[in-house]
């Protein structure tokens, strides 16, 4: 199988994630879309690692996973706190910085 197909898949996943971040209001969904983008990136890393025949990409994807895990902890905490305080998980409701 042609290895570049993995890259196409990665690009498609990234695009879906990006569109999801932009169009969805629910913070949880937006968050999941961000994860999707990160994983698309991971897939690209691993694929490039395979193409180049070394482990650099694999190591980079581990780093990404670690950072993503931390991000999930903090991000979910924020979303939960937000939901508690305003009974909504919509990102459009959280526009206080402008006002």
């Amino acid at each position: 199988m042609d290895i570049s197909n993995y890259l196409y898949l990665s690009a498609i996943l990234f695009t879906i994630g990006a569109i999801g971040v932009v169009v969805r209001r629910n913070a949880i969904v937006v968050f999941m879309c961000v994860e999707l983008m990160l994983n698309a990136a991971n897939l690209a890393f691993v694929t490039f690692s395979r193409i180049n025949g070394n482990l650099d990409g694999q190591v980079a994807s581990f780093f990404t996973m670690v950072v993503a895990a931390c991000e999930v902890v903090v991000g979910l905490a924020i979303i939960v706190t937000m939901y508690r305080s305003r009974r909504s998980a919509s990102v459009d409701d959280a526009s206080l910085l402008k006002r």
């Binding site: 990006a18 971040v21 932009v22 169009v23 209001r25 937006v30 990102v91 459009d92 959280a94 526009s95 206080l96 910085l97 402008k98 006002r99």
Partner: peptide, 14 residues
């Protein structure tokens, strides 16, 4: 541009 909506900031980043 500074409308306070996270999604539009994200769009600008994209």
């Amino acid at each position: 541009i500074q409308n306070g909506y996270v999604r539009s900031y994200a769009l600008i980043m994209v």
